[in-house]
Nucleic acid binder design. Structure first.
Lengths: 117, 117
DNA sequence: TCCATATTTCGATGTTAGCCGAAATATCGT
DNA sequence: ACGATATTTCGGCTAACATCGAAATATGGA
């Protein structure tokens, strides 16, 4: 991943409304959620949401498919993975013990769960 | 971690220069790098860098200590961990097989290394 | 104390991002 | 084709951000 695409993705996430949308979709799983449903759950006007969905989409963080009158949005886990890789690439200056807990705690322990690890 | 602090951190990272600084410090390890040295390596004017270091610092992503005439900056791995946790919290909608590769590939395999996994 | 080095603060300017009302487009059922 | 629902696009206004020159502050050594 290049610096530029990483900045695009981070900019997309660096926003109250968009971060909430993204997390909602991350937690929703592969099936995704319709735009209107997102608007209802997060209580945002449809046009503002549409704009933000577009930004997340251009950043590669979410994808969409049409289903009848609705458009279903869902998280792109693979691209999120690339972003995290990029952020922590070659971390710790060769001292794995520093960021090992990061790897262990950050992700493995929270996959599909709700409580604290 | 709260939504607001996550947005602050992501905003700090959503910038060419700051993301470069942060990655440099992540890769540098716990000892850190002096501000002047960062400016030299990334070829940015000292005042611009100072402003950006301040933003990263306020976001909790880096810390600093004075050493003689220099100020040494270093990454705060723990807070970075929290951010990643927050982003992927309760992911996959209860289908761990979706984000398991994320956990495996994203971090463990790249800790302190340079090549591709 | 005085100078050189290292970093930060201030002030001004141009650029970009966010928001919302109103109108446009797309799909479905009748 | 028409009306209802779902979503997107457009226009313009405001606020926030990035950058840089110049000046200020902090530290160490002679």
């Amino acid at each position: 991943m290049e610096l530029k695409s990483a900045v695009t993705a981070l900019s997309a996430l660096a926003h109250d409304g968009r971060l909430s949308v993204f997390r909602l979709l991350v937690q929703a799983g592969g099936e995704g959620v319709a735009a209107g449903e997102i608007a209802r759950r997060l209580d945002v006007p449809p046009n503002t949401l549409s704009s933000n969905l577009n930004i997340l989409s251009n950043a590669g963080l979410i994808g969409s498919r049409r289903e009848g009158r609705s458009v279903i949005y869902s998280a792109r886990y693979e691209n999120m993975t690339e972003l995290l890789e990029f952020l922590m690439q070659d971390c710790c200056g060769g001292s794995p013990e520093i960021c090992a807990p990061l790897a262990d705690v950050a992700l493995r322990s929270r996959c599909g769960r709700e409580g604290r690890a």
